[in-house]
């Protein structure tokens, strides 16, 4: 089992450290003995066929799986910034502030563009208009959306295009100042132009955030990520620099998968 990368990438600081993780839905084990480090301010892509466990694994990082009654960690641990996130004293709300998430289908609130961004801050008790205005603008700029929506901030977010809605969701995730952004198939419902914009955004955001992305689109993984992990049947098969995974992987299964000879 591959646990560390032998990549030629510059040495980076691990922000997520996963050690021997076993995870199950009831009696069905979904992840087997997964160990890997995810590095700060890089984009890490998870690839693999449907059911390989990549989304389950992604959702372990902000304990989204807690919402599924039968889901449970059987063994191993996940540390973020050195803290075991499954310990009973960990505040899950606080964890999710630090580990934001963007889903496959954009899910803006049925509110104005402005209120979508300000929502997270308001529930934290921040009401001052100047602060909210500033954060809304910052987040929309970071999500490369400001120029497109600055004149219609009070319009409903539901009137935006699919690509704009997805970038709004990214902007909304940024509002609570996370350090890590999880993206679960963020472009699967978008057209090529909107996909390109989100990919450009990911490239920009990695200057300030650590990004973990699950994608079925191997070309997307190749384009946007620094490191790629290939999963199959709940096991981490290979994890390395994206260049290595796509140009000269070490494992035959990885080679077969990335070259389309799988199955």
């Amino acid at each position: 089992m591959v646990t560390k990368t032998n990549s030629s990438l510059k040495e980076c600081t691990p922000i997520i450290e996963v050690s021997e993780l076993d995870f199950a839905y009831g009696s069905t084990q979904a992840l087997f003995n997964v160990s890997m480090d995810i590095y700060e301010k890089q984009v890490t892509a998870f690839i693999g066929p449907s059911g390989c466990g990549k989304s389950t694994f992604l959702r372990c990082f902000n304990r989204m799986n807690d919402l599924i009654e039968v889901a449970h960690t059987k063994g191993g641990n996940i540390k973020i910034n050195g803290v075991d996130i499954n310990k009973p004293d960990v505040d899950v709300i606080e964890l999710r502030k630090h580990v934001g998430m963007v889903f496959q289908k954009s899910n803006p609130f049925p509110k104005s563009i402005y209120d979508n961004i300000a929502y997270g801050l308001r529930i934290q008790g921040i009401k001052k208009k100047e602060i909210l205005d500033q954060v809304v603008e910052e987040c929309l700029r970071s999500a490369a959306l400001w120029d497109e929506v600055k004149d219609r901030l009070q319009e409903s977010a539901l009137g935006m295009s699919g690509g704009q809605q997805q970038r709004l969701c990214i902007a909304r995730a940024l509002a609570v100042k996370p350090r890590i952004l999880l993206m679960d198939e963020p472009c699967s419902a978008l057209d090529p132009v909107a996909t390109a914009k989100v990919e450009e955004l990911i490239h920009e955001l990695k200057k300030n955030y650590t990004i973990v992305i699950v994608t079925h689109n191997m070309q997307q993984a190749a384009r946007v990520s620094d490191r790629t992990a290939f999963f199959y049947l709940g096991k981490l098969i290979e994890y390395d620099a994206t260049d290595t995974i796509f140009m000269n992987p070490n494992n035959e299964q990885t080679e077969a998968y990335v070259s389309g000879r799988f199955g």
Binding site: Q219, A222, R223, T242, D243, M247
Partner: peptide, 9 residues
């Protein structure tokens, strides 16, 4: 060139 073909399509 090989890298660009492989990663950038």
């Amino acid at each position: 060139a090989v890298r660009y073909i492989t990663l950038r399509g």
